[in-house]
Design a protein around this nucleic acid. Structure first.
Length: 643
DNA sequence: GTCTGTAACG
């Protein structure tokens, strides 16, 4: 446990982390503070830039060229790596993403890349929303020291975080650490900002903070700001207060970021009293609340249902020019809707539109959803159409919202239009999209389409909604598609860790009615103990009559394993089957033997049937012996049961 | 003149 006890081993191995990682205490100051001045660097005054160098003018010419690659080719002999980096950054800064990649590839072909090239390139790939390419280029780096170069790692991680690929950023970070990365504060800043929108973001952030401490890296004001934002977005109000105080104790004075994050934490629980106190504290510290701060305060009032104060504040925001985008209206509209004041919400929404405030779709989506939930389907649909005619831009949430309202008004044409839009915009459907469509197809009673959608959803790795899929399964069974029903059953079983036990019974019922007895056996084999005796009985009876004869004995064993006592009627049916197929006599003998071992016996009519047909099997003697053994055994067991 | 990060809405 203690770091000291493992020190001798440490000395022998260079693969272990440095000792300061094992010892939780840090030296007083890990990184000495060095003021970098001309004196400390002692760089002699360079007489450069007296005349334009050929490299400089080449850079200028490539920068200005509409075809940078052609220009690069002209100056190939003049340009050095750092010159190319300047050109690369210029492409990025001017947002010419195609040229950016072309220049980078040109540099790669001539092995003119260094850490700075990679760092910059990944940064711009992040800005151009191309994390896939960044991952691809990073993965192709052969040189291990380059792969763990801290600025290279930071920029590729930043690219992932910026594009919402939080899980892959943490996965990649772990790989980098295994390969030997030594993270710096930039690394932690980047990763922490990824925690804000992560489900388990708070826990993840705590892990990172501890890791940072063990590496003796200092917390700074921005990292505190990020941390407070993480607390607010995960509703860790008390923790936010603690960090706010801790930060002050460490000598960082809070700025508007810190105040508004803490206020945001209060707004989640609509803690109006604490919010007011915080505003007082802010003013007394000499800061002036800005647009974000006041908008967050509006959220406190709005969530708390203090609509009079909220409206007053909104008027103030308007007067200060802080209500030029839809955000504050959205907050109040949302609060009104959730407070059951849908009419007031509608009035405010129309007021907002009347004032010419532009909407990115947030206000529309709040109103469309609210009207939909309230059962005002036509009105909701009208808003969705209005949004469409305004030619506003769509994202996944807006598409899902519109889709839902079009589905509920059975507007197939519009549903298709939304799906087409989704495709064109390269927006991948999510759980909500799929479930909306499945419900729609169910209501329209087109179960094969519901089935296709479930299949698609499953293939794309989304977790299925059990209640909905189970309904579709039953409907598919009723509509005469038992194989599809069974397929839904299997998708549910393999996409969820646990399913309700009634699912097995439902599936079994469908399969037995459709005489898909082999599939029914699959259901029974793994879940017999979750299925009611009457369903098992029904299955067993059908199987004995028309199931695959070679599986009869296996079915018996599976049923018996579940603890269900097989009735003599079932055995009777099995025996009748076997008697009609004398070439399966070995199976019959096996069954009779097994029955004896399990304390089962045949009833008298089966017994007579067997004895009468024994010569068919050429085993008169053997069958008679087994039957007699069985009677003795069952009598003993019967007596034991009576006791 | 290599990389980084913080606040409000569906």
């Amino acid at each position: 446990m203690e770091a000291s006890s493992s020190l001798p081993m440490l000395a022998a191995s260079s693969f272990l982390p440095p000792p300061q990682l094992l010892a939780p205490t840090c030296p007083r100051r890990a990184i000495p503070f060095v003021r970098v001045t001309a004196q400390t660097l002692e760089v002699p005054e360079a007489p450069k830039a007296l005349r334009p160098s050929p490299r400089r003018s080449a850079v200028a010419e490539v920068k200005a060229s509409p075809d940078p690659v052609a220009a690069l080719n002209r100056f190939e002999d003049v340009l050095q790596t750092q010159d190319c980096n300047i050109i690369l950054r210029h492409c990025g800064d001017t947002r010419r993403w195609d040229d950016l990649s072309k220049v980078f590839e040109w540099m790669q072909e001539r092995e003119m890349t260094n850490a700075a090239s990679y760092s910059s390139y990944f940064k711009y790939l992040g800005l151009s929303r191309d994390p896939a390419r960044a991952l691809q280029v990073y993965g192709a780096i052969q040189d291990r020291p380059m792969r763990v170069q801290v600025s290279v790692c930071n920029s590729v991680l930043g690219c992932l975080v910026k594009n919402g690929r939080f899980d892959s950023s943490f996965k990649l970070y772990d790989e980098m650490i295994r390969e030997g990365l030594s993270p710096d504060p930039f690394t932690y800043s980047t990763l922490l900002s990824g925690c804000m929108k992560l489900k388990q973001g708070y826990t993840k952030a705590m892990g990172l903070i501890n890791e940072m401490k063990s590496r003796c890296l200092q917390m700074d004001s921005v990292i505190y700001g990020t941390l407070l934002a993480i607390c607010a977005s995960h509703n860790y109000c008390e923790e936010a207060e603690v960090y706010f105080q801790k930060m002050k104790d460490e000598g960082h004075s809070p700025n508007l970021f810190h105040y508004s994050s803490l206020l945001n934490a209060y707004s989640e629980n609509a803690d109006y009293g604490k919010a007011e106190m915080l505003m007082k504290d802010l003013r007394s510290s000499g800061l002036t609340p800005n647009k974000v701060m006041l908008t967050t305060l509006l959220k406190v009032y709005s969530k708390g249902g203090i609509f009079e104060k909220a409206k007053e504040l909104l008027t103030e925001l308007e007067a200060s020019g802080f209500a030029q985008d839809e955000m504050p209206y959205c907050i109040l509209i949302d609060g009104l809707v959730k407070g059951g004041k849908i009419e007031e919400a509608k009035v405010l929404f129309n007021e907002m539109k009347g004032k010419g405030v532009k909407s990115d779709g947030y206000a529309f989506s709040i109103m469309i959803s609210a009207l939909h939930r309230g059962g005002h389907h036509q009105e909701s649909k009208q808003l969705a159409k209005e949004f469409e005619t305004k030619n506003a831009s769509y994202d996944l949430v807006m598409l899902n919202t519109s889709l839902r309202t079009y589905c509920s008004t059975n507007d197939m044409e519009s549903v298709m239009r939304m799906l087409k839009k989704m495709d064109e915009l390269n927006i991948s459907p999510d759980n909500i999209t799929f479930n909306t469509l499945i419900r729609y197809f169910c209501n329209a009673k087109v179960y094969h389409l519901a089935y296709k959608t479930i299949e698609d959803m499953h293939t794309k790795g989304h977790q299925l909604n059990e209640e909905l899929c189970s309904y579709v399964m039953v409907q598919l069974g009723k509509a005469g598609f038992p194989s599809e029903a069974f397929s839904v059953y299997n998708m549910l079983r393999y996409s969820k860790r646990t399913v309700r036990k009634s699912l097995h019974e439902k599936a079994l019922g469908i399969l037995v009615s459709a005489e898909l007895l082999k599939d029914a056996y699959i259901v029974v084999k793994d879940n017999a103990e979750l299925i009611s005796p009457s369903s098992l009985e029904k299955f067993a009876r059908s199987f004995m009559v028309s199931g695959n004869i070679n599986l009869i004995n296996d079915v018996m064993k599976a049923l018996n394993r579940s603890g269900w006592r097989i009735s003599q009627d079932i055995f009777g049916r099995a025996i009748q089957r076997y008697i009609r197929k004398p070439d399966k006599k070995h199976l019959l003998l096996c069954l009779l033997d097994w029955m004896t071992g399990q304390g089962y016996s045949v009833d008298s009519s089966s017994r007579n049937l067997l004895l009468k047909n024994a010569q068919l099997f050429g085993q008169n003697q053997l069958i008679a012996e087994i039957l007699s053994k069985q009677q003795t055994a069952s009598r003993t067991i019967g007596q034991r049961h009576k006791k």
